[in-house]
Nucleic acid binder design. Structure first.
Lengths: 162, 162
DNA sequence: CCTCAATATGTGTATTGTGCACATAATAGG
DNA sequence: CCTATTATGTGCACAATACACATATTGAGG
């Protein structure tokens, strides 16, 4: 192995560590005393901390079953089963059996639930616009493109050899 | 407001939604049955699920106090206090009072703890290299740069008006 | 120098969240 | 048809978490 190659490898390792650090910071901010929850609470609605990611996920990915959702959030399917049931009883989502596979009971967001995620989305967008206000357009577009690409390749890789 | 401006605003909103979607996917993968934990478990060591993010955080950010760490992970400081105490009793971190402020007991990773995070880091780097194998160098460098910038601006913004 | 609000850490205790063992229903493939 | 696999769900014990409260220290004013 040439020393040039070593340098490059070292450089990539450093870059990867940088990237991981940035991801930690981002997740850290997203974890803050649950900004979303605080938001909604301020709007007069209360929702258990644990239910929020699920509601958002169902809005984004629905109709979606319990198992797939559990895989997404990294929790046991029984845990998610209970939480989804709670969201249903609150009228924030509804479920109906899938036509072709009657084992799955797909969850979809209701108007009431959507009203809630819309509030949160608006708050998030406002925050995001503040963050990107000082960015030039090229960088912004590039971030979106590369982040999307990264997420896709990550998913592909994980499902591939796992 | 001109219609051109509307189009731009709509475009940005779409981009932001894209970005948020990508972030959800990324966090989703990072949440998988705790890849890290599974890794370490495979290496013969067992560590409570909840302790892992803290150990990694202390390795990255240490020396660091309980309150700041709690802020990072979005948990109550009392919860983190107990978890850090557990990490200490396991010999994975150590703590010493800060010289100038004797209220804080800063946590630092030990050799034993470092050995553990090194294992995980190696696994993560391997995974990351697989993901980026098909990327051209420019895109990769740009992703790192922009992600770091994004994380920094995000932090700045949050601490600013919160 | 003294007082008091603010900050960092920690303990007791009740509640919530979570996973495992297990069960049922439906599907898919010999 | 059987049988292995998959999706969902319940009972239960335990882990994780937050709230109320306590102690020690700091720092800013008076």
């Amino acid at each position: 192995m040439t020393s040039i190659r070593n340098v490059q490898n070292t450089h990539i390792s450093e870059q990867l560590r940088q990237l991981h650090g940035a991801l930690i910071d981002i997740v850290s901010v997203m974890n803050r005393p649950q900004r979303d929850e605080a938001m909604v609470r301020a709007a007069g609605i209360a929702l258990d901390r644990a239910l929020f990611p699920l509601l958002v996920g169902i809005e984004r990915l629905g109709p979606i079953g319990v198992v797939e959702m559990a895989d997404r959030v990294g929790r046991d399917h029984t845990t998610v089963s209970r939480q989804v049931a709670k969201l249903e009883s609150l009228g924030l989502i509804e479920r109906k059996g899938n036509a072709t596979d009657r084992r799955v009971r797909e969850a979809t967001i209701t108007a009431k639930g959507k009203a809630m995620t819309d509030l949160v989305d608006a708050a998030r967008e406002k925050m995001a616009r503040a963050i990107f206000a000082s960015w030039d357009e090229r960088d912004f577009e590039e971030l979106v493109r590369l982040m999307r690409k990264f997420a896709d390749d990550m998913k592909r890789d994980v499902s591939g050899d796992d």
